[in-house]
């Protein structure tokens, strides 16, 4: 059996996931990366995207993360994120509506901050939809 490590996915509301797993794939701000057991110590910033966890039984669980941070230290991985949606719990209608309103806001192109906000909202909605449609 492959070597395993511990992972915790935590939001301010709850501990979303806490288990021993084989591998994870996360989307860092510099591109996506995989983590296996005995990974070097690392602290990375995450972008809005999908976190894939492959547990000891080779089953995969996927989460949509809204940015965050990951720390890897001695086979303990901590993922800190503001919001986290589990695969299968995506409200598709809501995500669609959010996508539409974000796209509309982007067309108007307001000031720099507003544009960034709309971009972020669009990315969030897209990630959720990607998670829902696989």
């Amino acid at each position: 059996m492959a070597k395993t490590f511990k992972i915790e996915v935590i939001t301010p509301e709850k501990v979303v996931y806490d288990d021993t797993v084989q591998s994870i794939t996360a989307e860092g701000t510099e591109g996506s990366f995989g983590v296996l057991a005995d990974h070097a110590s690392m602290i990375a910033e995450l972008q809005t995207g999908i976190l894939t966890i492959s547990d000891v039984n080779n089953k995969t669980v996927r989460f949509a993360l809204d940015g965050g941070f990951v720390e890897i230290l001695a086979n303990n991985v901590i993922v800190l994120t503001d919001t986290c949606t589990k695969e299968g719990e995506v409200d598709v209608e809501k995500a669609m509506a959010e996508k539409a309103s974000a796209e509309k806001a982007l067309l108007k192109v307001g000031s720099g901050v507003e544009k960034e906000k709309a971009k972020a909202a669009l990315k969030r909605a897209n990630t959720l939809l990607k998670l829902a449609n696989k």
Binding site: P12, G28, T29, E30, F33, A40, S41, M42, I43, A44, E45, F69, L73, A74
Partner: peptide, 28 residues
């Protein structure tokens, strides 16, 4: 003890992570 095992890899950079993580830390 644990830290002594090896230096951290920072992605994208330690400075940028501090820049983003620190305000969040104070807030929470």
């Amino acid at each position: 003890k644990v830290i002594a095992k090896g230096e951290y890899i920072f992605e994208p950079s330690a400075e940028q992570i501090i820049e983003h993580l620190f305000p969040k830390y104070i807030e929470t």
